Simulated assay, not measured.
Amino acid sequence: MAHPRAHGATPQEHPFAQYVRILGKGPNLSRPLTMDEARAAMTMIMKGEVEQAQLGAFLCLLRVKTELPEEAAGLALAIKDSITLPADAPKVDVDWASYAGKSRQLPHYLLAALTLAQHGISVFMHGAENHTAGRVYSSEALASLGVPAATSAEQACAQLRAHNFAYMTLEALSPRLHQVMGLRQLLGLRSPIHTVARMVNPFGAAFTINGVTHPPYMPVHQEGSRLMGERFAAVFKGDGGEVERRPEKDCTVAFLADGQPGTEEWPALIAGTRDKEDGLELPRLKALWTGEDKDEVAAAAIAGTIAIVLRYSGRAASVAEAEGAAQAMWRDRIKTRIPGAV
């Protein structure tokens, strides 16, 4: 039987309540979180120190006002703090976020990442899956190429050392963050976690790249990454929200070059438009790699994606140089060997 509270006693406020109050006190008294406050709040979330009602309120309040770069940076740093890697984790060149899934076109970005890996540029890819019906996600597409997803950080390290490529689902990389992101089905809203999980860069790669669906989020990624201490980064509106160049469209890339922000325009690679594919036939990915399928539009998407990585990771001095080097990489891939395939 619960004991009645003594007359006049004041109930103790939950430590997390301050962060909900900051965001939700009203139109005149609420304010954004500082980066330190966001980091402290997310640390409590990752440690499971908040009540479910508080977590829902916190995520919804952030979503309604849209997270600022300082908030995104603080949240992402707390997530990064919570991820434990082996002490001998290898150096990684490219951190590649894959959080959207594809519904209109095949995930050509995977062939771009594997081409970079085959040419000695290591790529760690991570992503959330199965959050939206009717989409193809990275692990399923990689499986069609014979490339298994890593189920632990140790396995990812081994794959990176052996093949310069590893992919982990968010569920494997951070079960707690996967659980938090799963609240989308309960709340009916996409939470800020879909933005900040992309920014975590768990292996501390020298360069990070993100694709977004909505261009207004590009400055959040750009400035948030700068506040996190990233030196080289790029974000652009990718096909379906993935890191994949839309070859029929001009492309604006927001980047960090040695910590300094900037934007650059890329012209379309092909004329005309692309229709939605009738069915995303995953075996076509392998046919594209082997050269059996010579789809020039797909090749433009692949090389165009490689070019953005080369340009903003400091491996090309101009758009034209990046595009030429990318086309050569794709042309010269070893068609009989897919990195990591078993």
Results as ranks from 00 to 15, higher is better:
Thr213Gln: 13
Gln179Glu: 15
Pro261Leu: 12
Pro247Asn: 12
Thr263Lys: 13
His214Thr: 08
Thr263Met: 11
Gly204Ile: 01
Val180Ser: 06
Gly204Asp: 03
Thr213Ala: 15
Gly240Ile: 03
Ala268Trp: 05
Val243Cys: 12
Asn201Phe: 02
Glu223Lys: 11
Val200Gly: 01
Leu227His: 09
His194Tyr: 12
Asn201His: 05
Glu244Val: 03
Leu186Val: 09
Leu189Met: 14
Gln185Pro: 01
Leu173Ser: 05
Gln185Met: 11
Phe207Tyr: 12
Pro215Leu: 11
Val180Lys: 03
Cys251Val: 06
Ala162Tyr: 05
Leu170His: 00
Pro175Thr: 04
Gly279Ser: 15
Glu244Phe: 04
Leu186Pro: 00
Cys251Phe: 04
Arg190Gln: 10
Ser191His: 06
Arg190Leu: 08
Ala205Leu: 10
Ala234Met: 09
Pro219Cys: 11
Leu187Pro: 01
Glu244His: 08
Val253His: 04
Arg176Tyr: 04
Val196Phe: 08
Phe165Asn: 06
Ala166Tyr: 02
Leu256Asp: 01
Gly238Met: 11
Tyr167Met: 04
Gly211Pro: 02
Glu264Ile: 11
Glu277Asp: 13
Asp239Arg: 10
Glu223Asp: 09
Val243Ser: 06
Asp258Met: 07
His214Ser: 14
Ala254Glu: 13
Phe232Val: 01
Val220Ile: 15
Tyr217Gln: 14
Leu187Phe: 08
Thr213Val: 12
Leu170Thr: 07
Phe255Ser: 05
Arg176Gln: 15
Ala254His: 14
Pro267Trp: 09
Cys251Ala: 14
Thr169Arg: 10
Arg246Gln: 12
Gln260Thr: 10
Ala268Thr: 07
Glu244Gly: 02
